[in-house]
């Protein structure tokens, strides 16, 4: 535990070095606002029974959830593997993914003020949508955002481990990002999806990545217990898979000796 704390501290001061980049990254998450603009500007939301205010809260929440569940392990891992930094990490008595994990947490802490600034600007333009979720829901959405982050972190770590077999795992990640983008609720709330999609989408991990935590945060209707159960279910499913693939990967890596 102390190891993780020290790592976190180091990573935080490291991340502060990259404040410009992180601010830019925060800005790059503003797609949900464009989508909101399309929805409200064309009165598309009437058909799905969400009023303008609730919809804008939803998209702001989606923005926040996305900000704090963005994962980029694959890219760091691939770079480290390419630059040969991996070998020293592997012989350290700490799974290198802890390193990346703390890196992400540190980055999220650095990112927080920038996200707040963007939210503030958003409220400046849409004063009618200001709300403060009650503490229980705030807490629940915080938990579910973290769980969403964990799911994505695990999925990406699994993809990252494919680096041991193929040289460019990041293209697999880009492939996986497409369904995440369209099905997670970042561009349109899952509630607005056509019936034939809704019938199966809740069995995939996607709606629990953004839609579920964002609904919690914005106070939109959602099935709380089912959401949490599914998030935990996916984590329990992915974690053993990750440890397995990590084990196999390092075995292959050390066997090759490169």
């Amino acid at each position: 535990m102390r190891k993780i704390f020290t790592l976190l501290k180091v990573q935080y001061s490291n991340m502060l070095e990259y404040r410009v980049e992180i601010a830019l990254w925060a800005v790059s998450g503003i797609i949900p606002f464009f989508m909101l603009n399309i929805w409200t500007n064309n009165n598309l939301n009437e058909a799905i029974n969400i009023n303008n205010i609730m919809l804008s809260r939803y998209f702001l929440s989606a923005f926040f959830v996305r900000q704090f569940s963005v994962v980029w392990v694959v890219f760091s891992f691939e770079e480290d593997a390419l630059l040969g930094k991996l070998s020293p990490y592997i012989i350290q008595p700490l799974n290198p993914f802890f390193r990346y994990f703390t890196q992400h947490i540190a980055e999220q802490i650095t990112r927080f003020p920038f996200a707040l600034i963007i939210a503030f600007l958003f409220f400046l333009f849409n004063p009618e949508s200001i709300w403060f979720p009650n503490l229980i829901f705030l807490f629940l959405s915080f938990i579910s955002t973290f769980l969403s982050f964990l799911i994505q972190f695990l999925i990406q770590s699994i993809i990252a481990c494919l680096c041991f077999w193929t040289e460019k795992a990041s293209s697999i990640e880009r492939l996986f990002f497409i369904p995440t983008l369209f099905l997670s609720g970042l561009l349109a709330p899952v509630a607005s999806f056509p019936k034939y999609v809704k019938s199966w989408i809740y069995f995939t991990p996607f709606p629990y990545l953004i839609d579920f935590p964002a609904n919690l945060l914005s106070g939109n209707k959602t099935n709380i217990s089912e959401g949490f159960i599914m998030q935990i279910f996916w984590i329990l499913l992915l974690f053993p898979l990750f440890t397995k693939i990590w084990y196999e990967g390092t075995k292959k890596y050390t066997a090759m000796g490169s």
């Binding site: 501290k9 935080y12 001061s13 502060l16 070095e17 404040r19």
Partner: peptide
């Protein structure tokens, strides 16, 4: 070096 240095640098 250190966190304080980083903040100052910030």
């Amino acid at each position: 070096p250190g966190l304080r240095g980083t903040l100052k640098h910030f």
